[in-house]
Amino acid sequence: MVSFLAKLAQYLGLRRLGDKAGASRKSPLRDANPSDADANAQSTISRNAKITRFFAAYLLTFLEEIGILARLVGETVRWTFRRPFHVPQLLEAMRFIGVGSIFIVGLTGLFVGMVFSLQLVDGFRLFGAENMVGGVIGIALARELAPVFSALMVSARAGSAMATQLGSMRATAQIDALWTMAVQPVNFLVVPRVVAATLMVPLLTILFDLIGIFGAWLVGVKLLGLDPGIFVYRVRMLTDPTDVSQGLVKAACFGFALAVIACRQGYFARGGAQGVGEATNRAVVQSAVAILVLDYFISDLILKFMRSSG
């Protein structure tokens, strides 16, 4: 597919050159009577070719990116289960990604729970259903809000840092230095970060769940006067362990994805300081998009699985 598209782009490029060559060739008929219609037709063909080339180039870049990511994922998975295991690097990455993100994830969880409670109490009062707020918030947090927001926060804080660290290492030849010291850079740099993110984002999601519920309780019960017993009862009644576990599965997938994307951008960064900056930017944007896109597909898969298993 890639080679086909490369050939297509090359063909279109050659065609364009060919067009120029063709235009310079002397055609007796054209020389005798150059018409506007001919010129317009030529310009339309040239414009279409340009547009096609533009999209083909985009598609090629996209496919190339997928290919690089797939190779990095393959290498990462392979090295995860092969010696040497860099345990100190893993622990350090877990500390940085997990412990370092506790405050920001907790703060986000608190305010998400609070604002969600504020809006739901206001909306549900219209139907006299404000007693359901605790349960709805519990489900929403466990299934969607906690994994997505936790992953987005980790991506913004730790993902960007990972891309910058690896990008700087690439720019200052530290990754080459690892090779020359017989240390496999994917094993040493990428695997600990990916494993740590895959393990820590679910733990941060649990924290987000708990603090989010607390925030919702604070606003719902203390500020807006909901019955505390009913609030807690609804949370416990409606929020199933499967809701929490599906949130954790998602969180692990998001952690893996954001770390792979951040590492890919940093590890292959090019062009010095500017290149590192661009790589960091791409890492954050791509991670956020990937988290939201993955969220839909994983949710769909989980719901289908749950329905089929009764």
Binding site: T172, A173, Q174, D176, A177, T180, M181
Partner: peptide, 9 residues
């Protein structure tokens, strides 16, 4: 061993 231009420490 390799000593890089920028030392690569």
């Amino acid at each position: 061993g390799m000593v890089f231009q920028g030392s690569a420490l």
